[in-house]
Amino acid sequence: MGKSWLRGYITKRLIYAVIIAWGILTVTFILVRVGPTSPADRYLANIAAGGHDVTQAVAAIEARYGVDKPILVQYADYMGNLFQGNWGWSFSTSMPVTELIKTHWIYSFQLILLSSLFAAFLGILIGIYSAVKQYTKADYTFTFFSFVGISIPNFWLGIMLILIFSVKLGLFKTYYDTTLPLFSIDNLKALVLPVITLGTGMLAGYVRYTRSAMLDNLRKAFVTTARAKGLPERTVIGKHVFRNALLPLITIIMFDLGSIVFGGAYLTEIIFGIPGLGQVSFNAIFANDYPVVIAVTLIGTFIVLLVNLITDITYTYLDPRIRYD
């Protein structure tokens, strides 16, 4: 089957993504720059303590960072630089923003990846089981716990895990050890609590989505056809029902990735002291380090947009009926 329309569609979506990213960039820029704070603020105490003239010093610092110019000029400068691949200079860490992101993204990535895998794998399995056993004790139990899972504040869960497993039982360190090599058992062990913290809410969500998507399809006529062929129940559920349930499931999972994962990962990184982009952005906000704030927001946005696009494309292969115009 030809997918020739797909290329045009992707182009359109990419242009659309750029427009949205530009919108978000602008909003963030305005928010950061109209704020009543300036990059010089953090030096004020030092300047005053050093007996210098505060106004003069502030002006000097602002000139140094280019924030004394009219906001429109700053905006134009920033956009121009961005297009040349220059994301700006991080005041608070004294390095180019691109450098900063290069060193830190991997920590966010490993956390989100492991949590998603953990949550999706278990969540889908439990969801399928729950749907197949609808209205049994097992189903009720899983449903109840999925409610618990989506209701438990993940930052609190993180603290409770630290309290029980680190403080009381001493099984894990309370803080993520940044000196560990990335691909090592120790690193995996250090990530156990963070992954549970971030993954539990996702897991609970996946259980619920999978269950309802499976239930939507379990009573369809084609399932009876599959059984009438003499297929074992494993194939009926795993192939015929699940392939159909997968479609809505993928949309929801991808959709959630944007909000739950980024919000949740942010907090999880802060609780466990994981130096990922969430932590970086968090520190940058408090340090008024606006190029970093904008950059991280932008990266988050791009990932969401990209994931949405990939979802749509995957969809066309999973659901032959789909055609975007």
């Binding site: 950061v32 704020g35 944007g258 919000g263 942010y266 906000i285 927001t297």
Partner: peptide, 22 residues
């Protein structure tokens, strides 16, 4: 389109930003 932009915005980062600034 406005809704799209708002929805794509990493919600929590936006919240943190606003509350920090104001």
């Amino acid at each position: 389109r406005l809704t799209d932009i708002m929805m794509t915005f990493p919600f929590f980062i936006l919240l943190v930003l606003i509350v920090f600034i104001f």
